[in-house]
Simulated assay, not measured.
Amino acid sequence: MTNAATPNSGTESSIEITVNGSRLSVSAHHSLIQALWKTGHPNFKSASCLEGVCGSCRIMVKYGDQSAVNMALACQSKVEAGMQVIFPQYLEKESTTLLNHRYLLQPSSESGEQLKTVFPEAADCRHCHGCTVACPKGIDVEQGITLINEGKLTAAGDLFINCVMCDLCTTSCPENIAPNYVALFARRTTAVNQTTPPNLADRLQALQRGELTIKY
């Protein structure tokens, strides 16, 4: 009787995937980023922490014969045969409104009005749900924008607490809203308007008056 050949444990099986329109043969059992590195693509700029925290390696991915296109993080996505991947580019500076979102926060009860001035496009949300579907962290982005438009900035800020600023919600928005930056405004506003502890306020005032000395 002839024994079946034992696969070489040092040999990795390969599968075919499509990345940005190019077919690649990659090693199985790896994350997408690892597989790309092993096939000679070490300089993918859309990779940073590799822990699923920074959100910089966002991808659009379609599996096999499925019609749905999902949003995910390349460092957290295991390669599968037939998967199709696109690394979306950041919006060009000429087409983005982010450069116009400049503001100086001060403790005020008019934060809602300031938001309307800085992010007027937030009111144009058409509730298409695209931003929520795009979010790799499972945040209900659309609900967050609704809360912000209702002036509920604290609740909106809490909803976006796990946001990694990957911009996928921005790239998916047909109204050119940048939900992650709108939410960041809400969180910053909430922090600015919170009561400063008396002992901290005293030390800050002493520092401004030049009365706070530091001994080494």
Results as ranks from 00 to 15, higher is better:
Pro7Asn: 13
Asn8Glu: 15
Ser9Gly: 08
Thr11Asp: 08
Ser13Asp: 13
Ile15Tyr: 10
Glu16Thr: 13
Thr18Met: 05
Gly21Leu: 06
Gly21His: 04
Arg23Ser: 11
Val26His: 05
Val26Gly: 10
Ala28Ser: 13
Ser31Glu: 11
Ile33Gln: 01
Ile33Arg: 07
Gln34Met: 11
Ala35Gln: 03
Leu36Glu: 14
Trp37Pro: 12
Lys38Asn: 08
Pro42Glu: 15
Phe44Asn: 13
Lys45Asp: 10
Ala47Val: 15
Ser48Pro: 06
Cys49His: 02
Ile59Cys: 06
Lys62Ser: 14
Asp65Gly: 15
Ser67Lys: 08
Met71Phe: 12
Ala72Pro: 03
Ala74Pro: 10
Cys75Ala: 14
Val79Trp: 12
Gly82Val: 15
Gln84Thr: 11
Gln84Phe: 09
Ile86Cys: 08
Gln89Gly: 12
Leu91Asp: 11
Leu91Arg: 09
Ser95Asn: 11
Ser95Ile: 02
Thr96Leu: 11
Thr96Ser: 15
Thr97Gly: 01
Leu98Met: 05
Leu99Arg: 11
Asn100Cys: 02
His101Gly: 00
Arg102Ala: 06
Tyr103Leu: 07
Leu105Tyr: 08
Leu105Glu: 07
Gln106Asn: 00
Gln106Met: 07
Pro107Asn: 01
Ser108Tyr: 07
Ser109Phe: 03
Glu110Cys: 00
Glu110Val: 05
Gly112Glu: 02
Gln114Met: 14
Gln114Ile: 13
Leu115Met: 08
Leu115Lys: 01
Val118Pro: 03
Pro120Met: 06
Arg126Asp: 15
His127Arg: 15
His127Met: 11
His129Trp: 09
Cys131Gln: 14
Ala134Ser: 04
Cys135Asn: 11
Lys137Val: 07
Gly144Ile: 09
Leu147Lys: 06
Ile148Leu: 03
Ile148Asp: 07
Lys152Leu: 10
Lys152Glu: 15
Thr154Met: 06
Gly157Cys: 01
Gly157Gln: 07
Gly157Pro: 02
Phe160Arg: 04
Ile161Lys: 11
Ile161Val: 14
Cys163Ala: 10
Cys163Trp: 00
Cys163Gly: 04
Leu168Gly: 09
Leu168Cys: 08
Cys169Glu: 04
Thr171Phe: 00
Pro174Gly: 12
Glu175Lys: 08
Pro179Asp: 14
Pro179Arg: 08
Asn180Met: 05
Tyr181Thr: 03
Val182Arg: 00
Ala183Leu: 02
Leu184Thr: 06
Phe185Met: 00
Ala186Gly: 10
Arg187Tyr: 01
Thr189Val: 04
Ala191Leu: 02
Val192Met: 01
Val192Asp: 09
Val192Tyr: 08
Thr196Cys: 06
Pro197Lys: 07
Asp202Lys: 07
Asp202Tyr: 01
Asp202Gly: 00
Leu204Trp: 04
Gln205Pro: 01
Leu207Phe: 01
Gln208Asp: 05
Gln208Ser: 03
Glu211Tyr: 02
Leu212Gln: 03
Ile214Lys: 02
